[in-house]
Simulated scan of single mutants.
Amino acid sequence: MGKVGRAACIVTPMALAIAALVCLVLVFLGNSKSSSTLGDLYFLKADTSEFRSNPLNISGVDDELLAALQTTVDSDLKDIYTVGLMNYCDGNKNSTGGYKLTYCSPRKSAYYFDPISTWGLNNTAVEGLVPDSLQNGLKIYRKVAKWMYAAYAVALACNAIEIVVGILAIFSRWGSFLTTFVSTAATIFTVAASVTSTALYVTIMGTFNSALKDYNIKASLGGKMLAVTWLASAFAIGAGLFWMLSTCCCSGRSSDKHNRGRGPVVEKAPYTYERVNSPFGTSNNNATNSNVPLRDMNGQHTGYEPYSHRNV
């Protein structure tokens, strides 16, 4: 029952670790046009449909920049751009107000979304007219995106290792200790990645809306992706706590482990008699055939073995 009880004790942290790993995998697979579920998993969405549909009504902007935007990107600009961990996708709105993704860029590590390059504004006169606030924000985004991707990659690897090492926890507390160590690393990097991605895309959203609001280009956060990454953090934290508890609870030892081969332990009552060995080296079975006479209280020979009488 000891090993069975220990196996039951680690079911909870193992399940939480698996759930955290699944969430992290979804973060990596998100922003894809292969399915609507994955397509809804993005960190940031830029809506440019208003600029494309009615550019002449935009007022209060740099006329030179507006003219350059109209001539350079109006014909190729999509309605929607979504940004994931490793790529971006674009698509057009439909009559019902929804949208369908039509293209997703190849996935690559440490990806960051550069609207100037994506919209074909680089190496043109428009590039120099882009607001400084947007250009500065993109420079910071480029640097932080590398750390963010590294944090997610390490978190994914640590969670996978945690599940494998967690099998050792079934057999001993040392296995739980080792798993707790790996789980701590997984928790730290998962939470760090979630904090970084949330802070980063909240900042980028604010920069987009501030620099491009006059052009009717609006940015919004992907709530589902943020929910998934924070669920991964919650699961990782829970797994770490339960792994830690398993190092001091559910030892896995059987209750009769130290009595194995000794038979049942019987508590001795006070004033009991115990068999003693013959002082002349004879066995108890041959005590009646020894040269030592055995007498009872009346001096008569008896066939009983000698006993010692002591107070226990």
Rank of each mutant, 00 (worst) to 15 (best):
M1E: 10
G2V: 09
V4H: 09
G5D: 15
G5Y: 12
C9M: 08
V11P: 06
V11W: 08
V22F: 00
C23L: 03
V25H: 03
V27Q: 01
F43D: 00
K45W: 08
T48K: 11
S53A: 15
N54S: 09
L56R: 12
L56M: 06
L56P: 08
V61S: 11
A68W: 02
Q70N: 08
T72K: 05
T72R: 05
D74N: 12
D76T: 11
K78P: 04
T82Y: 01
N87D: 07
N87S: 11
S95A: 13
S95Q: 14
G97V: 07
Y99N: 07
L101H: 02
Y111F: 12
P115W: 06
I116A: 05
I116Y: 01
T118P: 03
G120V: 08
G128H: 08
G128V: 04
L138D: 01
I140E: 13
Y141H: 15
K143L: 13
V144R: 02
L156F: 03
I163E: 00
I163V: 05
G166F: 03
G166D: 04
L168D: 04
F171S: 10
S172H: 06
T180V: 09
F181A: 11
A185F: 03
I188S: 02
T198W: 03
A199D: 07
I204E: 00
N209V: 09
A211G: 08
K213R: 10
D214R: 13
Y215A: 15
L221C: 10
W230G: 04
G238Y: 04
L241Y: 02
L241C: 07
C250N: 03
S255N: 14
H258R: 11
G261M: 06
V265H: 15
V266I: 15
Y271K: 14
V276K: 09
N277C: 10
P279Q: 10
P279F: 06
G281C: 14
T288G: 09
T288N: 11
V292G: 12
P293V: 07
G299Y: 03
Q300P: 02
Q300T: 12
H301A: 13
H301Y: 08
H301E: 13
G303M: 11
Y304H: 13
Y304N: 14
